[in-house]
Computed example of a mutant assay.
Amino acid sequence: MHPRDLVGMVAAQLGLSSARVSIQVRRLVADGYLQKQGTTRPIYTLGRNRRFQQRYPRAGLAEDILWSGQLSPLLRDVPRNVLDIAHHGATEMINNAIEHSEAMHVEVRMDLRDGRLSLAIADDGIGIFRKVARALELPDERLALLELSKGKFTTDPKNHSGEGVFFTSRMFDRFRIASGGLVFSHDEEQDEDVLFDVDDMSRKGTVVFMEISTASTRTTKQVFDEYSSGPDEYTFAKTVVPVRLAQVGDENLISRSQAKRLMQRVDRFRHVMLDFSGINAIGQAFADEIFRVFAQAHPEVELVPVHAVPEVQQMIRRAEVARDRDGGQRPLL
């Protein structure tokens, strides 16, 4: 940085007028990204806020070097627990873009302002939902979010555990993925996952947005512990499955096929919370396939329905009673 000749240096490097650069510098001072001392020959230093934006060729990019060389020095005043979360999220999502996106470029943005830290990782590749849908031969890209929300899914199991998106989404206050006209959003305060469509279906690639308060007391250890199997065996054994992500469009959840779609790969976990938020009713066959057929076939998996309205609870209980009565050998018609 050039604290004594900032305006002149930037103007010379970018080929802009000093007057134009001065306007931008005054704006950065007003927004807290720069501090100004003196008037005649002012000295500029970094302000309390930080901002970073850079576009890189994907080939040859290394997330650890980018973090240690570019991002970490700008966050030296951030509390350690928040810094660890930022480190985890940035490197995981940059690595995903490097190894999975098939992109030409990766853009990294960081903004630390007024007690909130946000990170955005964007690429111009195939798109995360499209890639997952193709790998699993899903009929609709919306269903890719269901698999990502469960965790333990990767298109490269030899080199990846498939846990990056799941844990990162739960470390930050807000986490969002936008790709191909679809947006997945996880909000820690509202404790829910939301999937919605946007008008821009032509946008190429994927954008991951993460935000956390610098006053947050959350730690990476707390998040890992919450979904681990216990203090003596740190395996990813617990997950939360948003049931409404099994819906495509306005369809109702009534069929066994929909239930099988919902429960795909769930047998990899020991404790599964099925979140029925936003679901007002389910069909008998849908409930029976989950709480009788699947439960009998996988007694080692604990299924815990949460946020179910009374009508949904009744259908779940009906399937559980049938399971207890006949052992799940005869499908209910």
Rank of each mutant, 00 (worst) to 15 (best):
D84A: 11
P3K: 04
L14Y: 12
H87D: 06
P73Y: 11
D31R: 15
R4S: 01
R26W: 00
T45Q: 13
V108L: 11
Q54R: 15
I65F: 13
N95F: 00
R113S: 13
V7E: 05
E107W: 02
I94N: 02
T45N: 13
R27N: 11
W67R: 07
R20Y: 15
R27E: 14
R55A: 13
R48Y: 13
N49Q: 09
Q24V: 10
L61R: 07
R4W: 00
L46V: 04
H88N: 04
R58V: 05
G89I: 07
L71P: 03
R51Q: 14
R27S: 14
H100K: 03
R113H: 14
A12Y: 02
L83D: 01
Q54M: 14
H2T: 12
A97G: 03
R41P: 01
G8D: 13
V106L: 00
A11S: 15
E102A: 13
L14H: 06
P3M: 01
G115P: 07
H87F: 03
P73E: 14
I94S: 02
H88T: 10
L16H: 07
M110H: 05
R109E: 09
G47N: 06
G60A: 01
W67I: 02
N95I: 00
Q35T: 05
L14R: 14
Y44H: 09
L74Y: 13
Q37F: 09
N49L: 08
D5N: 14
R26Y: 00
D84Q: 10
R48D: 15
H88S: 04
R58S: 02
I85R: 02
A97Q: 01
L34F: 11
G69V: 03
T45A: 12
Y56N: 03
E63Y: 00
A97Y: 01
Y56E: 01
A103E: 04
G38S: 12
L34T: 12
M1F: 09
L75W: 06
Q70Y: 06
Y44M: 09
R26P: 01
G38I: 05
D114Q: 15
S18F: 03
L71M: 08
I94E: 04
L75Y: 07
V29H: 15
S101E: 00
R55Y: 02
A12T: 03
A103W: 00
L66K: 02
L46C: 07
A97K: 01
M104W: 03
D77Q: 06
I43Y: 11
Q35I: 04
L61C: 10
Q37G: 03
G69L: 14
R80P: 08
A86P: 01
A19I: 06
G47R: 08
V82M: 04
R20C: 12
N96T: 07
T45I: 11
S22Q: 15
D64V: 10
R76Y: 10
G47Q: 09
L61P: 07
E99Q: 11
S72Y: 05
R48G: 13
S101M: 05
Q13F: 10
S68Q: 09
A97W: 01
V106G: 02
R41K: 07
Q53E: 10
H2Y: 08
